[in-house]
């Protein structure tokens, strides 16, 4: 009984390590075959459309709502200490440092990441990938790498849009609806948010998230068993794995970036 459980556990661990190695090799291959994505940039543009443009609506709407909630909650909390004027700084800092990169990446994973996995998985299941290989065309270069770079380019842009919409939402609730002084809202924000320290670091975060989410989504699609269940399972795994990875990486990056405070 115990031996059996141990064997099962050992099997799982060996499998996980194996998959990690395979995933790393896959990631290296993406980078190795990335030349085409830039030489024939229209391939990447196509994917920018399906990952970036198609995620625009959800990012803009979600960003606005998150900013509005931040405005409301932040105001209620700050009011107790008589520092409502710091609302702008609170909203903007939360957004550019944490919520923008993290929430945009989570939304991106479930909107674009899952779609990428399903698409690649289905291409594999319907032998489109094998067909490409038989035509002497490398699917890593032609199919996978352009999607990867599109995701990596989209993510920081989407995160910037999310944060900007969030600030706008916070402004609407804080200044327009509640009546916090407009001047102090913006000036406190500018005084509180540092370009290098907050905005650039936030962008670095979302770049890293973009790499992680897209790589996971593509790997899961490429590795999916070529059946209906295989593809649907892989899609679920993409969302779960990339969400956990985003939160974990966020912790690591935050610890590195903002430890000096």
């Amino acid at each position: 009984m115990i031996v059996e459980n141990l064997r099962f556990l050992g099997h799982r661990i060996v499998n996980a390590v194996w998959r990690m190695g395979y995933a790393s090799r896959f990631f290296m291959l993406i980078l190795f075959y990335s030349g085409t994505s830039f030489r024939r940039f229209h391939l990447t543009i196509r994917e920018l459309f399906s990952s970036g443009v198609m995620s625009l609506i959800i990012i803009l709407v979600a960003g606005t709502f998150v900013g509005m909630v931040l405005g409301l909650q932040g105001y209620e909390t700050l009011k107790r200490y008589g520092s409502e004027s710091a609302l702008g700084s609170l909203v903007a800092l939360s957004l550019v440092r944490e919520l923008g990169p993290v929430l945009a990446a989570l939304l991106f994973a479930s909107r674009a990441g899952s779609a990428m996995t399903a698409e690649i998985g289905l291409m594999k299941a319907t032998e489109q990938i094998s067909a490409m290989e038989m035509m002497a065309i490398n699917p890593m270069a032609r199919v996978v790498a352009p999607r990867f770079w599109a995701g990596v380019i989209s993510m920081p842009l989407l995160s910037a849009l999310f944060s900007a919409m969030g600030v706008f939402g916070g402004y609407v609730v804080g200044v327009v609806l509640i009546g916090v002084d407009e001047g102090s809202f913006w000036s406190q924000m500018q005084a509180g948010v540092d370009f290098q320290h907050d905005i650039v670091n936030g962008m670095i975060k979302s770049f890293v998230f973009g790499v992680a989410v897209t790589a996971i989504a593509l790997f899961e699609g490429y590795d999916a068993p070529p059946t209906a269940e295989g593809v649907s399972g892989a899609t679920t795994r993409t969302v779960v794995e990339s969400s956990l990875t985003i939160l974990f990486l966020d912790f690591i990056l935050t610890a590195f970036m903002f430890q000096g405070e």
């Binding site: 698409e119 289905l122 291409m123 319907t126 032998e127 489109q128 094998s130 067909a131 038989m134």
Partner: peptide, 13 residues
């Protein structure tokens, strides 16, 4: 070489 796959394998996109 050309290969016709069992179900055609046309690129659906």
């Amino acid at each position: 070489m050309g290969m016709l796959f069992q179900f055609g394998a046309l690129f659906t996109d």
